[in-house]
Design a protein around this nucleic acid. Structure first.
Lengths: 344, 344
DNA sequence: TTGTAAGCGTTATCAT
DNA sequence: ATGATAACGCTTACAA
């Protein structure tokens, strides 16, 4: 913190007026002479006065700061969400304190404590993979503390959520594979404790059922880690067994899809002719791999924007005027590239 | 900000002691009876007491908060740096307020003001592409405000910088291409107002000169935008002219390299046989494109860690005990993949 | 061992 | 049109 930063008192002393006059003059309060206003502003300029937001925050019990709790910063989707949050916050005069949990519950709880200590006005959360007990959040909500959950929806009543329509995204992706003539579609699923994993799986199932394709349990494979090596190994093994040798893969994530793609190629199979692949998230690299990977685009920036937009709305409302529960689901967009297109 | 949050006064009232006693008891000050300490802590627990960091900050003129000004959050290198910063900050009890400039000078200045208003203890900056006048930073430095610049080094005297050794990275990449037998190496350069662009170009030049390869001005091409389409178009055009048809490309960035790769492939040339390519930054996708792209790995996480480590050191030192100028250059690592390897 | 009071920077309330 | 004062939550001389 800068020492020797000029305060209202300094301005007051220089001009032989009281601090209240200075305070009022700086904010163009009525009932202050233009002459005084001019002098005060001039002196403020001269002394390089900068209001102390901390003092203001203490005085007004309002910090114009929101906390963001996010699993990982180095993640295309999440960094995009952060970007949306930051942009909207900036435009509305709010600060963003960022905490990443690295998917650890302990860190989530301790970051939450710090944020609250710092008197944040509201909180945006995407909880960690380890989080199954949400009481640290529900306790706050009982006290009407403004919280908006994004991407990962907690298993709690009356929450405000901004998510991506994972079900539809998965449904569309799977249906697209079916329309391309693929018959035996394997699903590389995410960790089952995340609602997004469940939704994506449900979308996949729904598309199969609608098309009258029997659901085979052995074709639904969970990737707990979610890195490319894991799915590489999984697919290599699965494809060596005729029973689990699929002709298409719907992966819950592009990284996983990319590992699967490498495995398929390493087995001498052609994409999309022998095996069709669709991923999820449309990471930057998806268009650059060979063949370019079809993927479900998640509107990360909009998720961030909407989440903080709603949060700021709530912050400004009295608890009794707030909606109890809100669920915004933003639409995905299926980006069809070569990896899943064998019909021109 | 939570209303009805218990304060020290509440605890004091409940126990019929003074707030100072409570304050001292909570911090295990000597000279407070164990009995009182116990009772105070119990009551604090019961009332769900949480220290008010804002009040503390005001009182102590120290916020345990640092500001981070960064061009873009959605950027593999920068998000990695942020991750390093956040992790180290967390471990040391500091908060991170994040501001992205979207490469705009105006936003950089205004974010700086907000951060200072919020009484940050120090600042980590990677300035915007638009920034050519650094006076908003130098003014602060004159007042001994702790600032550490990362990645992008300002054109100022006596600054503290944590950067990547771009010169060496570029030198090694170019030398590698030379050792692979490539003779006519084109450089896709970054915006010349960024020191990193200049350094990378210098590394390229130095490797050529050392090998006695003549430097051809027409083989040094700037990519102002830095997206894949730009470099795609550039390379396509350049390679259609025999004069600028190179047999290798050193790109200042993986995105640019990837665009170049697509252009080369679209011309029916083989990589690495006809054209060798090396990028910079080792983005996540680099290993997943076809052929896998050789790239210069930048230790982003370490850049973030070192930058905030130094910042926190400075914050705790009196201005007169601080080093005037520090330049940490972290080593890059050349990741050799198929795109540049035609000699086994 | 504990209490009193001042102060961090700001503003709202009540005077003048 | 301006000033004095108290208060936001906390710490810390100084007193007791």
């Amino acid at each position: 913190m800068k020492l020797g930063q000029a305060t209202i008192k300094d301005i007051a002393r220089e001009l032989n007026v009281s601090s209240s006059t200075v305070s009022r003059a700086l904010k163009d309060y009525p009932g202050i002479s233009d002459e005084t206003k001019r002098k005060v502003k001039e002196m403020a300029e001269k002394l390089n006065y900068r209001p102390n937001a901390v003092a203001l925050s203490l005085r007004k019990s309002k910090s114009f700061t929101v906390g963001v709790i996010i699993p990982e910063v180095v993640h295309f989707f999440f960094s995009t969400v952060i970007s949306g949050i930051e942009d909207f916050a900036y435009k509305n005069g709010y600060n963003v304190i960022l905490c990443q949990t690295n998917e650890k519950l302990e860190r989530e709880k301790s970051s939450l404590e710090t944020l609250l200590s710092n008197q944040i006005d509201g909180l945006l959360v995407s909880y960690s993979k380890e989080t199954t007990d949400f009481s640290h959040f529900s306790k706050l909500m009982e006290q009407d503390f403004p919280i908006v959950f994004f991407d990962r929806r907690p298993y709690l009543e009356n929450t405000i959520n901004v998510t991506v329509n994972d079900f539809n995204g998965a449904y569309n992706a799977t249906k697209h594979l079916i329309l391309q003539g693929y018959k035996k579609i394997l699903h590389l699923a995410g960790p089952p404790n995340l609602a997004i994993s469940v939704k994506r799986k449900e979308g996949y199932l729904s598309a199969l059922q609608e098309a009258g394709i029997p659901v085979l349990e052995e074709l639904i494979v969970t990737c707990p880690e979610g890195d490319e090596w894991e799915s590489f190994e999984l697919i290599k093994k699965l494809f060596q067994n005729p029973l689990t040798r699929a002709d298409a893969i719907f992966a819950h994530h592009d990284i996983v899809a990319s590992g699967a793609m490498m495995a398929v190629k390493s087995l001498g199979l052609r994409i999309p002719d022998d095996v069709g692949i669709v991923g999820f998230s449309n990471w930057q690299f998806s268009s650059m791999i060979d063949p370019p990977l079809s993927s479900v685009l998640q509107p990360g920036f909009q998720v961030g924007e909407r989440a903080i937009e709603i949060l700021l709305e709530i912050i400004d409302k009295k608890p009794e005027d707030r909606a109890l529960s809100t669920n915004i689901e933003l639409d995905t967009e299926l980006i069809i590239r070569k990896s899943s297109q064998r019909i021109p």
